[in-house]
């Protein structure tokens, strides 16, 4: 029983770490978006307000996959659902 619990906890910790690999995607995507926004502002400085607003919304939407992974990691770490199934 104690072994099974330890195994589940260890596997959950590894799983939570693996889930956060999904952070790579939003990082690359948002960096790309911000870079393009900087280019746009450099070309047309007068439109910086609209560009910045749109970029922030786009970044927030692109972030959602990372947030999903983060929620999964949180569930695995703090309210482990598998411990109840022992």
């Amino acid at each position: 029983m104690e072994n099974a619990r330890a195994l589940i906890l260890a596997a959950s910790a590894i799983g939570a770490g693996l889930a956060m690999i999904a952070g790579i995607g939003p990082g690359i995507g948002e960096g790309y978006a911000v870079g393009k926004a900087c280019e746009a502002i450099g070309r047309q400085p007068e439109s910086s307000g609209a560009v910045t607003r749109t970029m922030f919304i786009g970044c927030a939407v692109a972030e959602s996959t990372g947030i999903y992974a983060f929620v999964v990691a949180l569930i695995l770490m703090f309210i482990n659902p598998f411990l109840g199934k022992l």
Binding site: A60, E63, S64, I67, Y68, F70, V71, L74
Partner: peptide
Amino acid sequence: VSMSFRHFGNVAG
């Protein structure tokens, strides 16, 4: 689902 998770995940994180 995505709207609520986004807001919750950012603040809780």
